[in-house]
Every structure is written in structure tokens, then in C-alpha cells.
């Protein structure tokens, strides 16, 4: 059965969002995804990477984002992680429309989009080690 993996490390900067989502989209092409599935994956990856850029690191602090993707049979596993400040309350962060930055016109819909567009979403966070988002999508 098909198995493949990739890992990408980028500077935590919004200019890398399009790069990261396009890399993951290109990586999963071997599973023959539909256009809609590719769009779902790009959007979910963009949300996860944006979270790292906007919330992962203290303002002005440089940081790194790691994007891993793994194909196992017909399932795409994606992991997006930072080594930043962590999420104080994950269940609160997962609520639709919850944002810690309402003053910046943020919708608070990032995790809701990931959850809706992917088949599974798991968020782990520790203030000492950062935040990791794991998502899967079956492309069979």
C-alpha cells in the first residue's frame, strides 16, 4: 500500500502560509484527491499555519513552524507545530468565534474550519514546548 512522508520547516512568517499549503496540496496528489478535497486540505493547513504565525510566538519573537505530512494507505495525516507560547485553554480555543484578539478583526473560526474540512482534528499544547495540531483526511 502507498506510504510516503514529508517534513517542512519554515520561519514563522505569514509569507510562508501559501508556500506551506501548496506544498501539502502537491504532496497529496499521488492519492488522486478531488479539487474539493485539495481545497479543503489547503484551507485547513492555512488555518493551522496562520495560528502558529499569529499566536504561536510572542510578538516580535522569531519562531519556526514544522509541517509534516504522512500518507498511509489512502489517508493523509498532517501535523503542524510550533515551539511557542502554547494555548492556555484548548477547549476554549476550539469554540467557534472564540478569539484572543478581537481587536484585530479575527474571526475565531480557524479550528472550526479545520474540524469541518478534515476528518479529524487533535490539538495538544504545552506552554513549555508549544502547540501541535494533528489532522487527517481520508482520500480513498
Amino acid at each position: 500500500m502507498a506510504e510516503n512522508y514529508m517534513e517542512l520547516k519554515v520561519l514563522s512568517d505569514s509569507k510562508n502560509e501559501a508556500f506551506a499549503r501548496n506544498v501539502v496540496a502537491a504532496f497529496c496528489v499521488e492519492l488522486n484527491p478531488t479539487v474539493d478535497q485539495i481545497d479543503d486540505i489547503k484551507t485547513a493547513v492555512s488555518e493551522a499555519v496562520t495560528n502558529c504565525v499569529v499566536h504561536g510566538y510572542a510578538k516580535g519573537e522569531p519562531g519556526e513552524i514544522t509541517i509534516k505530512a504522512h500518507i498511509q494507505n489512502a489517508t493523509l495525516h498532517i501535523e503542524v507545530s510550533d515551539s511557542g507560547v502554547g494555548i492556555a485553554d484548548i477547549s476554549e480555543a476550539l469554540q467557534p468565534y472564540f478569539t484572543t484578539r478581537p481587536d484585530e478583526e479575527r474571526s475565531g473560526m480557524g479550528f472550526t474550519v479545520m474540524e469541518t474540512f478534515m476528518d479529524s482534528l487533535e490539538v495538544t499544547s504545552d506552554p513549555r514546548v508549544g502547540t501541535t495540531v494533528r489532522m487527517t483526511k481520508c482520500l480513498g
Binding site: A18, K42, T50, E105, S107, G110, T112, V113
Partner: peptide, 13 residues
């Protein structure tokens, strides 16, 4: 061609 939830924030603003 592409918009994520950041765009929702922009539109709401």
C-alpha cells in the same frame, strides 16, 4: 481563488 478564516475577519471588519 483562496480564502481562509482570516478573510472572514476582514469581511466582518
Amino acid at each position: 481563488t483562496f480564502m481562509d478564516s482570516t478573510g472572514i475577519g476582514v469581511l466582518l471588519g
